[in-house]
Design a protein around this nucleic acid. Structure first.
Lengths: 256, 256
DNA sequence: CGTATTATTGAGCGGCGTCAAGCACAGTGG
DNA sequence: CCACTGTGCTTGACGCCGCTCAATAATACG
């Protein structure tokens, strides 16, 4: 199989602030607020793939906005099994759900070389103080995240491996596409099959078999770390996927 | 086996507002803010068990504070399988994660006779406008929810049925206990085994076997719908359970 | 080019689903 | 007081999806 994939892992274009860009794509936001959001990315740092930026059960006072690259958050359970909780892309904030806890419930590791922007806990209460609207938008972003978690739970509990994998790929792609409209039907997935397995709840061995099955079924094509959706609509119907970044309603937000 | 269980399904004591009580238990909050929160419960309504108060894929502009009883939220997937997304108790808000969407991603059904207090979407932006601190506390509650979802995903993907069930029981109990300090080691569980199965991702048949196994292992005792933890500490270690309502840190919140 | 990591493929097995029958209990009506 | 009915729980038989163990191939990297 010789597909012609160019590298389309384009990060958030060289805009100054990815988080501002993300908020802008979610709903109406003033230029002033965009400038305030951009401050979260005042201290960019280049980080190697495989670096742990948050450590499970260890205290932190730092959060991170991702500017470039992929970050994987996972929890190790009592039997030593790792589970991927979330995958973060440019514009995402890593560590938000750790906000009410002194120690992080999970670890976050860079899956690729990244540019990340650490900021202190206090900055978040600044955000709350700026305006009710911005505060509500922050809330909205968290609720979108939560809807995605709900979908994942529904998948985990009630589907076979090939449905889960396909859903995971759709999910991942649509998150990338939200920030990068250039994407059409294919993307670069830097995650290895062990990590994908930890995300969908199967072993790496079975991920391999399952990828083969999806290809056989004519839903995807693979080449190295590239994945292409052969028939997006069919895949969506097959898995019951809903894009939680679409049809976001921010009309309820306060005006200022 | 003849255990002597009295009915200890005490709801939020006849305090006017369960949600105010919940926030009070999470962190320092002024009396003025408590009064404002209490307004969410201005319109209590008695509802029969089995009533659908939110319907998947249907638009709503109403949210609900639970004053008494249990509410179960679940999603039906493409193959018709139902999955329990969340279980709500007195003081919880049903529908928060539906906030950014016109149509609800899930259905919510009363599992017992309930007292619930509907309120309109607008009330939530009022909450954001009252004060950054209150807004942050609301955020905190959502993040606790999120941490619990993370735990559930970790359980679903990487544990056998008996570990999942035990974890689910610990989880449920600790949520009840948070609002009802009288609870010691047992609680009334109004959910049938089909619903429990939908929550932990196994069939009702297997829930039955798994309950039997946990009893055999000496971790729990059962009598009708009552569950008693024989050895809480052992159960906690066995499942790696963390109580996300404990050690909540609200020090980062703005002062007002 | 040598070594480490990752992906593929096969064989065997076990946990859990499915199907189905039997039991316990509550509510209803005679 | 007892048949009738419905709902939920229990238990057995059997099969399949996905795990484990293990060997080999492919790829990345120094």
């Amino acid at each position: 199989m010789s597909l012609n994939f160019e590298n389309i892992d384009a990060p958030c274009e060289d805009v100054k602030s990815c988080i501002a860009e993300k908020f802008r794509r979610i709903g109406l936001i003033s230029n002033e607020h965009l400038r305030l959001l951009a401050k979260f990315e005042d201290n960019p740092a280049e980080i190697r793939a495989g670096t742990e930026i948050l450590s499970q059960d260890n205290p932190t006072n730092e959060f991170f906005v991702i500017n470039k690259g992929w970050v994987v958050s996972s929890m190790k359970n009592i039997t030593g099994v790792n589970t991927v909780i979330d995958i973060h892309h440019p514009g995402d904030i890593v560590g938000v759900s750790q906000l009410p806890y002194e120690s992080s419930p999970y670890s976050s590791v860079t899956a690729t070389n990244c540019v990340i922007c650490p900021f202190p806990r206090n900055s978040l209460d600044d955000l709350l103080k700026i305006s009710p609207r911005l505060s509500g938008m922050f809330q909205t972003v968290c609720m979108i995240e939560q809807a995605i978690l709900h979908d994942r739970i529904a998948m985990m509990s009630a589907s076979e491996a090939h449905v889960r994998l396909c859903h995971f790929l759709l999910q991942t792609f649509s998150r990338l596409k939200f920030m990068n409209s250039d994407l059409t039907d294919r993307f670069y997935c830097p995650l290895n099959q062990r990590t994908i397995g930890e995300a969908i709840g199967v072993t790496s061995v079975h991920v391999s078999r399952t990828f083969a099955k999806l290809a056989e079924m004519g839903l995807i094509e693979r080449n190295r770390n590239f994945v292409r959706f052969v028939d997006w609509q069919r895949a969506v119907k097959f898995t019951g996927f809903t894009d939680r970044y679409e049809n976001v309603d921010v009309a309820w937000l306060p005006d200022a």
